[in-house]
Design a protein around this nucleic acid. Structure first.
Length: 307
DNA sequence: AAAGCAGCCAACCGCCTCAGG
DNA sequence: CCCTGAGGCGGTTGGCTGCTT
């Protein structure tokens, strides 16, 4: 493991900070300010690297830090901000006075994420789905549910296939990131092969930016990269039978983002669309689909299950 | 009482951006 | 334009702690 350039020139201490070290750092920064962090260890008499000093100060020693448990208000705010911003912890922390990005990140990973996932599965009764599930009073006839669904994690929309081949859209009263690829039940794991995301990296006003951002956040949470209209991911994650799973490219179906602009995968099976203008252009050059894509049309495509 | 386990969280790592030379 | 160092960020790790068996 290599160390930072600021740490390589001399022996530096690592690991937890002692009270004596804390005292030295507080004393120095309080009287002189931190200035250039790389010079702080020497001037403060610490055998630490500048980066370590900076981190210790920002995350732990700063006098304006709020200590203690997160309040319900803070928790709600984090959930809402994460829905909008994804894993931009520093941006989220800016809206929470006295909290650090590290603190927010740890709180999310250790507490909120589990709560949301647990709530999601409680509501959806995965994996049986044998009986009607009373969620937000809009879910009916779930006993016709064949064991697969097209899921739109965005803003808690799920599309249940109906016996007549159509699909029923259900709004879940859940944050968009309640479930992610890494935690969804195995039967919901992807069966897709190659999809292109027909939406832009930077959403325009043609798209509900919040929704797209939320979707990107989910993808980022699942070891995925989203760039230039394409999603590269390794959904299964890690090594299977000694072989590392390959990365795959996906184009996400429109239900995933719940856009008002349906995109006909059957008509454009191999098309990669890199921006909304391009998408709208292709939609105007060919007649728009009369109705939203049916489950059957997804089934005919390489994607039968998508979360 | 001891061992095992799981969760939490402080700290580290690697990458990126930016400014200055 | 390139190089280098500093700062900032998100992902990850590993040690500590408390709970369970």
């Amino acid at each position: 493991m290599g160390h930072h350039s600021c740490c390589s020139k001399q022996k530096v201490r690592r690991g937890l900070w002692s009270p004596e070290e804390d005292e030295k750092l507080i004393k120095y920064v309080s009287t002189h300010g931190h200035g250039c962090w790389s010079s702080v260890p020497k001037l403060a008499g610490l055998q630490r690297c500048g980066k370590s000093c900076r981190l210790r100060w920002i995350n732990y020693l700063r006098p304006d830090l709020k200590r203690g448990n997160f309040s319900h208000q803070e928790e709600s705010l984090i959930i809402e901000l994460h829905r909008l911003l994804g894993n931009r912890w520093a941006q989220i922390a800016k809206h929470l006075p006295g909290r650090t990005d590290n603190e927010v990140k740890n709180f999310w990973n250790s507490t909120i994420k589990k709560k949301l996932i647990s709530r999601a599965f409680d509501v959806l009764d995965f994996p049986s789905m044998a009986n009607p599930v009373p969620i937000v009073g809009e879910l009916h006839n779930v006993d016709a549910y064949p064991g697969e669904l097209v899921g739109a994690a965005q803003e808690g929309f799920v599309y249940l296939p109906q016996t007549d081949g159509s699909q029923m859209e259900i709004k879940l009263d859940l944050p968009s990131h309640a479930v992610d690829f890494g935690t969804c039940p195995s039967f919901l794991q992807h069966q897709a092969s190659s999809y292109d995301w027909p939406f832009p990296n930077q959403p325009t006003d043609a798209v509900n930016c919040q929704e797209v951002n939320a979707s990107i956040a989910i993808l980022e949470n699942s070891r995925s990269k989203f760039s230039n209209g394409r999603l590269t991911t390794s959904l299964g994650g890690g090594v299977v039978n000694g072989v590392e799973e390959a990365e795959e490219n996906y184009r996400l179906p429109p239900c995933f983002t719940n856009l008002g602009q349906p995109y006909d995968l059957q008509k454009h099976p191999d098309q990669t669309v890199n921006n909304v203008e391009e998408l709208l252009g292709s939609a105007s050059s060919s007649p728009p689909p009369a109705a939203p894509l049916s489950y059957a049309s997804f089934h005919g495509s390489p994607c039968s299950v998508m979360w």
